[in-house]
Amino acid sequence: MSITFDHVSRAFDGREVLHDVSFALPERGAVCFFGPSGCGKTTVLRLLCGLDDPDGGRVDIPEGTRFSCHFQENRLLPWYTTEENLRLAIGSEDVQPWLDKVQLPDAAKLYPDELSGGMRRRVSLARALAHDSDVLILDEPVRELDEATSEKMLELIRESIGDRLLVLVTHDRSQAEKLGCQIYEFPLK
């Protein structure tokens, strides 16, 4: 069973961001929500994760679907180290391989406020990738990263998709192409 949006509408302060939108996401593979800012990508993501409810229509999410998400903001717990932040998402599994994968081998004992913006993005990305889930949502995953690091992170994302569904949100079509995403062009009809 796949996630479906059935005639979904959502408005904020009288401004309709989504109007009668219907689509179905595949069970696995990679999709990309692509479009300019303010076209409703974040609204769709929030409805998808159950963080918001539609004003009209319905969002059907199969029972027991597990999500992991790399938000636009890092959303790391400031009172825990990098290692502890990752462990909260992946349990007792060793976090060091994931730190190595996101090129932060020495960051385990550092707190978020001791990391640069780009480093925090990678910790957040590692948390999303490492978490056992059915749907992996990545909202602008390589923003703030230099080109070489972006390339490596995109490669890591491609390797980490596995048997789940990747939902990528980006302004950069080339990223979607590198990850072999089916593109959903916003604004959705």
């Binding site: 159950g50 963080l51 992991s68 998400c69 938000f71 903001e73 998402a89 949502i137």
Partner: peptide, 21 residues
């Protein structure tokens, strides 16, 4: 709120959310 949303998306239990956030 953003941390609470993160916990919700990652499927944390209510107790874990209270204890950690």
């Amino acid at each position: 709120r953003q941390l609470l949303e993160m916990a919700q998306v990652f499927g944390w239990s209510r107790w874990k959310t209270w204890r950690r956030i």
